[in-house]
């Protein structure tokens, strides 16, 4: 035991800031929120134990909970593939060996740095407003644009487009993955007369599978947690007609607008379970479609 600590002491010293942060700042709130999810708590009085009431209400009587789930699931289902496709497409363009690749990489990454900021969400609201830039451009072509954000039928798609625009970090990871595929494989395929399309589906995609998997897991988690852009664009309400009522926006409102901390905690735990479930499913299916070169047999 003594030997174990002596040998690993440097590791623990370096890990200590994380331990301090986790135990003091994270573990407490995690356990507290679990407890609070079984209580009624308005931050004024003491929490009152209500058992499974919050969960029962959520699943059986709360229609806005189901609406929030619908909005979030739709968003995840559209935004994740769209962002990954965009990221892969741009990564493949950049992989062509441009001399100024560093510059382009930085330029393309910029929206991702700005993307989560409040300013960009506000800008987005301006772009897609009735007299915004998008409609002005469309008008030049004689097309009458819609009220993108205030129309419940289109509002969610403006956020999907915003998500697509923020392809920077998966793009960088894809680019690194593409760089890792030996050129020889494409040259061998070239000599064999393999079309570019077949090269993409039979060589690039299978060899990129570990990276696609990594990006898929990360982006799915990210998409479920989307908050600030939805909050800003819907003015914090999920409007119009709850079409932007993202799960996190609903949770935030329950907690900090209506001070239903117990119920909000229960919502947070359900979101955690949902994210955990989808991550587990992705991991489970990965053995059928992800190929690792150095896999043990």
């Amino acid at each position: 035991m003594k030997k174990f600590f002596r040998r690993n002491a440097p590791a623990y010293v370096f890990l200590s800031p994380w331990f301090v942060g986790f135990f003091l700042l994270a573990l407490g709130p995690i356990l507290a929120s679990m407890y609070l999810s079984f209580t009624r708590y308005d931050m004024v009085g003491d929490p009152r134990w209500v058992g499974l009431d919050n969960y029962e209400y959520m699943f059986e009587r709360d229609r806005r909970f189901w609406k929030a789930l619908e909005v979030t699931f739709t968003y995840v289902a559209l935004a994740v593939p769209a962002r990954l496709a965009m990221a892969l497409g741009v990564a493949m363009l950049l992989d062509k060996g441009l001399r100024t690749i560093g510059l382009y990489r930085a330029i393309f990454y910029l929206p991702s740095l700005l993307g989560s900021s409040i300013a960009i969400a506000i800008l987005w609201r301006q772009l897609f407003s009735v007299d915004g830039v998008v409609n002005q451009v469309l008008a030049k072509f004689g097309i009458e644009g819609a009220a993108w954000i205030s129309d419940p039928n289109t509002s969610l798609y403006t956020l999907v487009i915003l998500a697509m625009w923020q392809f920077g970090s998966p793009m960088l990871i894809f680019l690194a993955g593409l760089r890792g595929i030996p050129r020889d494989l494409y040259e061998a395929a070239e000599i064999d007369g393999t079309s570019k399309r077949r090269q993409f589906f039979r060589i690039t995609l299978p060899l990129l599978a570990p990276v696609i998997f990594f990006n898929l897991v990360l982006q799915t988690i990210e998409a479920f947690k989307t908050f600030s852009s939805a909050f800003i664009i819907s003015n914090g309400t999920g409007a119009p007609a709850d079409s932007l009522l993202f799960y996190t926006v609903y949770l935030f409102n329950e907690a900090f607008k209506f001070f239903r901390m117990g119920y909000a905690s229960a919502l947070a735990w359900v979101l955690l379970l949902i994210i955990g479930f989808f991550t587990a499913v992705t991991f489970f299916t990965s053995k059928y479609w992800v190929h690792y070169e150095n896999e043990r047999d």
């Binding site: 030996p182 020889d184 494989l185 040259e187 061998a188 070239e190 000599i191 064999d192 007369g193 393999t194 039979r202 060589i203 299978p206 060899l207 599978a209 190929h291 070169e293």
Partner: peptide, 20 residues
């Protein structure tokens, strides 16, 4: 003429086998 139309085969130093 593209490589595929030259009716030749090439063996690479790295073997260039498709790992998957």
């Amino acid at each position: 003429l593209p490589a595929s139309k030259r009716e030749l085969s090439m063996v690479f130093q790295s073997y260039a086998l498709y790992p998957h």
